[in-house]
Simulated scan of single mutants.
Amino acid sequence: MHDIWNPWHGCVKCSEGCAHCYMYFLDRLREQDGRRIYKTKAGFRKPVQQDRKGRYKIQSGEMIRVCMTSDFFLEEADSWREEAWDMMRERSDVVFYLLTKRPERVERCLPRDWGTGWPNIFFNVTCENQRRADERIPILLELPFHHKGIMCAPFLGPVNIRPYLASGQIERVKCGGENYDGSRPCDFDWVKALRQECADYHVTFCFIETGTNFIKGGRLYRLPNKRVQSEMAYKSGVSFRGKPIHFDLRDAWGQPVPEEARYVPHFRERCQTCGSQIICNGCSDCGKCEKANQRG
């Protein structure tokens, strides 16, 4: 996916949501060990890679998800993080989406010139259940970031975040069920309750996928196909667009990047029923859809 930057790969499990980690599962399929943590080679400098004309491949205004096969604040990555921060500082015209299960490590891992935060960083914590929500969100609220969000995935139980939404700091909430080996069920009642809390505070809520085992109306449905999961999440109609998030993006000279100069996501027909569309970076024009259609 063109909106993902994995400067390092591999992780250490640290909470309930890690028990059936998708990264570990996919690594096993490739006969690799998800516990092996290493700095990526081809992808490490992705944010500053340029085309033959000297233009950045990642365009101004894009949102890039960081460390989707690891954790940006993983202790084992401490020696690589400063260089990653340097690239995010250089690309002040790009939004970087950070997600962690380790918010207690964040303050000591920030760059020296952080101050009250960089406006192009969107910081999120994972809250797979109420225990982790009550543990991690208070830390999130105390940390110096301009933009903050919550990810309830894998969604393992009902989560009440209403007291934290009342702070006015949370700008977006995502949730989704669990996949692959040992997938634990996600109950639609939990999703609807979380959505209502977000709607009450005009916070964007995105239900991205049902997970493999989905409970609706007391009945358990098995949905192993991730495309179907995403479509079912979309068709549920529970995703909600709240207050828009404005990122103060700057070019290399420190000047504001106007809205008309920012990347605008575009979508193909199959994207119209995807649960992630309202938060997606759009189509990368990689050509895989055409190849799939030809095979079909």
Rank of each mutant, 00 (worst) to 15 (best):
P158Q: 13
S79Y: 12
D78L: 08
F72H: 03
E171P: 03
E62D: 01
G149L: 09
V159T: 07
I58T: 14
P154N: 10
A166D: 08
I64D: 02
K53I: 00
K101W: 06
M88L: 13
I137L: 02
F73G: 03
E82V: 07
D71G: 03
G157L: 07
P111G: 02
C152Q: 08
K148N: 01
N124L: 12
D189G: 11
R65F: 14
F155M: 11
A153N: 05
S92I: 08
N124C: 14
V159W: 08
E83R: 11
I121Q: 06
P119A: 12
F96M: 02
I58N: 02
A153H: 08
I121G: 07
S60N: 12
R91E: 01
P119N: 15
N179W: 03
K57V: 13
T69I: 13
G54Y: 10
G61C: 06
G182S: 07
I150R: 11
C152V: 15
C109E: 11
R65Y: 14
A133Q: 05
G168V: 08
I137F: 04
P158R: 14
L99Y: 13
L140D: 00
P154F: 13
C186V: 07
I121N: 07
E76I: 10
C67P: 00
L98P: 02
R102G: 00
I139G: 00
E178V: 05
G61I: 06
R108S: 14
M63S: 14
T126N: 08
I64P: 00
E90F: 09
E107D: 09
H147E: 04
D187V: 08
G149M: 11
P138L: 09
L74A: 07
R108W: 10
G117T: 10
L74H: 11
M87S: 05
V125A: 11
Y164S: 02
R105N: 12
S60V: 01
G149P: 09
D134H: 10
E104L: 06
E90W: 11
L140M: 04
V125S: 11
T116D: 15
L110E: 00
L140C: 04
T69G: 01
R108M: 10
G54E: 06
F188I: 08
A77P: 02
K192Y: 13
E142Y: 05
S183L: 01
N160F: 02
R105D: 01
L194N: 05
F155W: 05
Q130K: 13
S92H: 09
L99I: 06
P119S: 15
A133R: 09
Q59I: 06
K192H: 11
C67R: 01
K57F: 06
R184L: 08
R184G: 01
I161S: 06
W190L: 05
C175E: 01
F155R: 04
R112Q: 12
E83S: 09
A166I: 02
E62N: 02
T69N: 10
Y180A: 11
R55P: 01
I161H: 12
S183W: 14
V159C: 03
I161A: 05
S92M: 09
R81H: 05
R89I: 11
E171V: 03
R131T: 13
C175H: 04
D189F: 07
V66R: 04
D187G: 04
R132Y: 15
C67Y: 05
R184C: 00
D71Y: 11
I64G: 02
E135R: 15
I64T: 03
R105M: 10
W118L: 13
F145C: 03
